[in-house]
Every structure is written in structure tokens, then in C-alpha cells.
């Protein structure tokens, strides 16, 4: 089985687990999601600057929200890891950075995608394609993407740290985004 097929199967698998939580309040399915994602959410939060204990607390809160709001889950529209990414990021910005009104935490994220108005159906195949595109990014672009998402570094901080011009940081990120966006948008 190719890695891409595994990823499609994975995305399907998590979507089925989530549906079981959503429709039947299936605790076992929830715990499978919890066991897989909670350590990943914790790692992510630590990377962007939550202290260890806070990362634990916020990851618990993110997963608990998933349980409490499961009724809103629409497998045709939303991807589990995207939802978790959003809520973890928002919790971090709200609780750790204490930023005012970054995005309304009360209202977001919810299962029906943020606006409801724009097309955001995210098929499992698209998600798998995106995973592949991330793996295929040129080294420098992959590095800049990771420093942005996993260390929450600003363009200037990245430029200073890697000793490259600010303009190069921006243009590389732009190119990386366009490559990945093709996967997101399902174009070839």
C-alpha cells in the first residue's frame, strides 16, 4: 500500500471514529481519537511556546471541546486535525499570549466551516494529497513552514535566525503556500 493510500485510509478512519462520537456518543471512539491526537496537540502547543503544564491543560481542554461539540461534526465538510489545529492555536493565543480578540474563541472553531459561505469541503483524498505535498516541499520551504507553524516565528525572526534576507523568507513562504494550496484546492 502506498503512503498516500495509507493516509486516505487514516483520514477515513478518524472521520469514522468522529462520526461515532457525534452520532452515538461513542466513548471508545472518542478515546481512540484522544489517544492519537492529545500527545500531538500537546507537542504542538509546547512548540509554539506554551509551558509544559499549560500545554497539557490546553490539550485536555481542546479534546474535551471536541467531545462536547461533537454533534456539530459534519464529516463531509471538516477535517478533524484542522479543527484541532484551530482550537489549539486559539486557546494558546487566548490563554498564553493573552491577546485581545484575536478571533472570537466563543464562536470558533465550530464544525460547519468558519464562514459557511465559502466552499471548504475537504475530502480525505485532498487531505492525503496535502500530506504528500508537505513531504515533497524543497528543504528550505519545509523549514520555513515548520518554523512558522511549529515555533510561531515571525518572518523577521526567521530571517535573523537563518541569516537570510526578509524578502527571501516571504517569497519562499509564498511559494510553499502556493504548492500546498494546490493540494488544498484539489487542483493539479
Amino acid at each position: 500500500m502506498s503512503s498516500s493510500e495509507t493516509q486516505v485510509r487514516d483520514a477515513d478512519y478518524w472521520s469514522c471514529q468522529m462520526e461515532a462520537v457525534s452520532r452515538r456518543r461513542d466513548r471508545d471512539s472518542f478515546l481512540r481519537i484522544y489517544d492519537h491526537y492529545a500527545p500531538r496537540v500537546r507537542l504542538y502547543l509546547k512548540g509554539i511556546g506554551s509551558p509544559e503544564a499549560v500545554a497539557e491543560e490546553l490539550a485536555q481542554e481542546a479534546l474535551l471541546r471536541l467531545w462536547q461539540r461533537a454533534a456539530l461534526y459534519d464529516p463531509a465538510r471538516s477535517n478533524l486535525s484542522t479543527w484541532l489545529f484551530r482550537i489549539a492555536r486559539n486557546l494558546h493565543i487566548d490563554r498564553v499570549r493573552h491577546e485581545p480578540c484575536w478571533m472570537e474563541l466563543e464562536n470558533e472553531p465550530e464544525w460547519p466551516d468558519i464562514d459557511g459561505g465559502f466552499s471548504s469541503a475537504e475530502s480525505h483524498a485532498e487531505q492525503a494529497d496535502l500530506q504528500n505535498r508537505i513531504e515533497l516541499l524543497p528543504t528550505i520551504q519545509a523549514r520555513l513552514i515548520r518554523m512558522s507553524y511549529f515555533e510561531a516565528r515571525s518572518h523577521q525572526e526567521i530571517a535573523d535566525q537563518l541569516g537570510i534576507p526578509l524578502g527571501t523568507v516571504k517569497s519562499s513562504l509564498r511559494r510553499a503556500f502556493m504548492r500546498l494550496q494546490l493540494g488544498v484546492r484539489g487542483q493539479v
Partner: peptide, 30 residues
């Protein structure tokens, strides 16, 4: 575009590889 960028974040989140130390912590949190 923001929504696309959040999906990229979601995909990256899924790719994180927890370490053994994290797994030890997991039992208590579970």
C-alpha cells in the same frame, strides 16, 4: 486563503511524532 493555511496547520499537526516521554505522561492525562 486563511482557511487553506489552517488546513496546512491541521495536516502538520497530524504529522507530529510523539516521543516515549510523552506517552508516559499520557496515562495520567487519560
Amino acid at each position: 486563503r486563511l482557511s487553506d493555511a489552517e488546513r496546512i496547520g491541521g495536516a502538520l499537526l497530524g504529522q507530529q511524532q510523539p516521543t516515549l516521554a510523552d506517552e508516559a505522561r499520557s496515562a495520567r492525562l487519560r
